[in-house]
Nucleic acid binder design. Structure first.
Lengths: 330, 330
DNA sequence: TTGTACGCGTTATCAG
DNA sequence: CTGATAACGCGTACAA
């Protein structure tokens, strides 16, 4: 590979001049022209390792989350990727964190400086994670619930409000007995959605019990299918809210098989509004948590922070939106 | 951030010794112990830019493809990510290539050395792309159809065989008039699937014409919906094959709305076997192109090539599998 | 405006 | 087995 030295020789100038041309510092017109010609000629590309070593910047941003099999994270990744693609930063992806240990290990490697910033959406809460994030020397944008004691840029979606919208919508359309199929309550979303559900139900004076509140073992369709099959009697309910669309898809599948009519017998509402929601039959009413938009916002926050490291920490809250489809209205 | 020098001072040894301990070269037991203690103490992490500069390796692998909104690529990304996560390599993602220009630009930046290898799945064929890939100094694994004149590791799925399986399955289950909804024929998959469809149809002596061969403007459900609505009369057909599951989902939606019964009036078959296929109603018969597995294989090929740069070029062919579901059998 | 020379943090060579 | 030291390729004082 051609180095800056080779370009300098070819152009008959010093390496300093080549560097200046590349980095846009002043240079005489004809110098610049010769340098550019040499660069083209040799197909020169600045070595990123050398550059990174010198300027202490990798031009890379790391995006970390639990798992790419969740379409909501795919949407987020798309948002981040889109925004980053018009910047100088590359996207490095780090997913598949099945345990707190793995996140901790990953966070520790951040010290190597291979990324200038970290956008992270941790599914688990753990003091170690919070501690490590706080100690990172690089900018961090956290997507999701901020752990205790962490103070970084944050993009947050008010999923409680979303759940509330869903419940109110169901009540307004005449439903009275609402069940909830949650994901693992060991996760942040699981815990938060459980709390939000119970709060809204109480506020609206709606009855609910442990038996109307199921916990699936994952945020997947299969888990949703298994979860709904554990209800003693579906006839006790006229509506089910699922903690995400994938769970809802599984639940819907079960209903179809058991000839439970949706929405006539039971209304079904999901969360996330992934593409799937409009392809199911009946189409699925869902609370749009704007994952792609959150990804874009997170990336923009990161770019701003990188450009201006000392600006005050920002928290951006995204409002969910209820997308009403066939699964909840006759 | 602590440097290797700081560790050396703290441990009372030379930086060379620290380096040796880190890289596992011989060292006396007590030297090693002191160095390790110092490393722990200072929370030292080797700087990856400096290391990359010296050893000419970035420990990063770049995965490039068209677009993350296609679930098949998400599967592939998962496969690659999984395999890479148990290696020392990081995954850098480069998607959203809407034009040949962008791919060319991206390929040119590869010369910067920020990645040790490139796994690429180009949706477009272009001589410039082929040329650039051939000239890259780094290992490349190509997922998909090899362009003319390119000679790199390749993982290939015999989608023609898959299409053939689908057609035979339809014929065996009594279908006679088979239509094909293709994606953009400007793309590699589009072109190949068109050719494969026509070849299989001829071989089986099945009638088909231009009017039974539609071209959607993208590989999306919306495009599938619009495409199927352009058939003059659906009654002319008793089966439709779609170039991917997303197109099929759109087509299915249209059929549901128009009260065309699937599979009674029309059988529907998709390609890719993404999660969606088993969630649709009716569930969708689909040709599994094993995207996730191809991702794993591609990553493994890359790791092998990196470990052994001079081994002969490999081509691994993956066999598709027809997953029969409700949309094609009564 | 241009060129020389140094240093970024590592690894690897070569004497001891 | 260890320590001093020369690269790796680039950016930038500083001097011209």
């Amino acid at each position: 590979m051609a180095t800056i030295g080779a370009v300098a020789k070819q152009a008959g100038v010093s390496i300093a001049s080549v560097s200046r041309v590349i980095n846009g510092t002043a240079a005489r017109a004809d110098t610049e022209k010769r340098v550019r010609a040499a660069i083209d000629d040799l197909g020169y590309q600045p070595n990123s390792a050398a550059r990174a070593l010198k300027v202490r910047q990798s031009e890379q941003i790391c995006l970390s989350f639990d798992d790419l099999s969740n379409p909501a994270y795919v949407l987020m990744t798309r948002g981040v990727g889109q925004t980053l693609s018009s910047s100088k930063y590359r996207l490095i992806l780090s997913s598949a964190f099945s345990s707190v240990e793995e996140i901790v290990k990953h966070l520790e490697t951040m010290g190597r400086g291979f990324a200038d910033g970290l956008i992270i959406s941790p599914i688990y809460s753990d003091p170690r994670i919070a501690e490590l994030i706080s100690q990172l020397k690089m900018p961090v944008v956290l997507v999701g619930t901020m752990p205790e004691g962490v103070n970084v840029d944050n993009v947050y979606v008010d999923s409680a409000a979303g759940l509330d919208m869903a419940i109110k919508h169901l009540v307004e359309t005449g439903r009275k007995n609402i069940a909830f199929i949650n994901g693992p309550v060991a996760t942040n979303p699981g815990r938060r959605r459980k709390a939000a559900f119970e709060k809204s139900m109480k506020q609206l004076n709606l009855a609910f019990s442990n038996s109307s509140n199921l916990q699936a073992e994952a945020f997947t369709p299969e888990a949703g299918y298994r979860a709904i099959s554990e209800f003693r009697d579906l006839k006790n309910f006229d509506a089910i809210i699922c903690a995400n669309d994938q769970l809802a898809a599984g639940a819907m599948k079960f209903c179809v098989e058991k000839r439970v009519a949706i929405p006539r017998d039971i209304a079904l509402v999901g969360i996330d509004n992934i593409d799937l929601a409009s392809l199911l039959r009946p189409t699925l009413t869902s609370v749009d948590l704007r994952a792609e938009e959150r990804g874009q916002i997170a990336a923009r926050l990161m770019l701003k922070r990188l450009a201006n490291p000392d600006s005050p920490v920002k928290k951006i809250t995204v409002q969910p939106q209820l997308i009403i489809r066939e699964s909840s209205v006759a």
